[in-house]
């Protein structure tokens, strides 16, 4: 710093340490609680140092879960969360890359219309369209049949070349339903668009002279150049997917599709009794672990992703 005042530096360190203590306290409490028995946590003050039942708690939660609430082992919930997080992250990246490529590298009729349609998704989070979206998930063909009705066709069947197709397909309680509707992404499309605009035009020209068509250019030049951006975005989107809450709450009723983040809610909200806190905290630690490890392990990519998606 500008002047050398040791006491200022000491104060800075002190403030940081106290701040970090406040920030870390919930994690500490959860970790400690997850190593005790339910009996240890019955009366205040609860212990602030580790107990000896950690292994038992984690084993129980991972293998059989909490019997009286749905009774799903956490392994299954963690697996569901992983599927959801990975599908959302990869799906968003793939369709945003191609969309951004089309918008940046081609001139075609309705280009700006497509851009604005994608832009609008920014303003329509799940929270503002809960019921109608549920309706669509319950039958994905709802928009189509309603439109057909408008044009005088009745019913939910169409006949094409003698084949009758029932327009009824539900995505409730499925991985498709958990992920597909969430992979549209204006943010990711904008991020890639922003990045593509910084790629020198001469590279495209050189590739054209070298005989590369659009898809070859996309695969050989643009994708490899986007590598760090893709990785950074992946970190952010993985966390986003893992932490989804309202969406799985809406479209899953079958316990075998419960994700870990929403599963904890059922363990906490037990009727007329105190939750089994030692097991709840075990579950909470397990639910936090994957995304927290991703953030800490890929700190540089994470920071990059965070900053870039906000541009």
């Amino acid at each position: 710093m500008v002047e050398n005042r040791p006491w200022l530096t000491v104060v800075s360190h002190l403030v940081l340490i106290v701040g970090i203590a406040i920030v870390v306290l919930p994690l500490w409490v959860a970790l400690v609680a997850s190593t005790h028995t339910g009996r240890d946590l019955l009366s205040a003050p609860i212990p602030m140092w580790f107990g000896s039942h950690g292994v038992d708690n984690y084993r129980q939660m991972l293998t059989s879960g909490m019997e009286h609430v749905s009774g799903q082992p956490l392994t299954l919930m963690l697996f569901n969360s992983l599927v959801m997080a990975l599908s959302i992250a990869i799906g968003k990246i793939v369709i945003s890359l191609t969309a951004a490529f089309a918008i940046c590298y081609f001139r075609f009729p309705l280009r700006m219309t497509c851009f604005w349609i994608i832009f609008i998704t920014l303003m329509l989070p799940v929270e503002v369209r809960i019921l109608p979206t549920y309706e669509v998930i319950a039958n994905v063909f709802t928009p189509l049949t309603r439109l057909l009705e408008l044009f005088g066709f009745e019913g939910d069947e169409i006949v094409i070349a003698g084949l009758s197709i029932r327009l009824d397909f539900s995505m409730l309680d499925s991985y498709t339903g958990l992920t597909l509707p969430l992979i549209a992404s204006a943010t990711a499309t904008f991020l890639f668009r922003q990045f593509f605009l910084t790629v020198p035009d001469e590279l495209t020209e050189a590739a054209r002279i070298d005989g590369a068509g659009p898809m070859k250019f996309f695969r050989d030049i643009l994708l490899p150049l986007s590598r760090t951006n893709i990785a950074a975005l992946f970190v952010i989107l993985f966390i986003y997917g893992w932490n989804q809450y309202l969406w799985p709450l809406l479209i899953t009723t079958d316990p075998s599709y419960v994700t870990v983040v929403m599963g904890i809610q059922r363990m906490v909200n037990v009727a007329d009794t105190e939750p089994q806190w030692h097991l709840v905290m075990t579950a909470a630690v397990l639910a936090m672990l994957p995304p927290v490890l991703v953030v800490i392990g890929m700190q540089r990519l994470f920071v990059k992703g965070l900053v870039e998606t906000e541009k």
């Binding site: 020198p200 001469e202 590279l203 020209e205 050189a206 590739a207 054209r208 002279i209 070298d210 005989g211 590369a212 050989d220 030049i221 490899p224 150049l225 590598r227």
Partner: peptide, 19 residues
């Protein structure tokens, strides 16, 4: 198309593929 003209070009900023 540029690729079919049987020409080669050297660009001001070289336009080498960085990866």
């Amino acid at each position: 198309e540029p690729a079919d003209r049987d020409i080669a070009m050297v660009f001001q900023n070289y336009a080498l593929y960085p990866h």
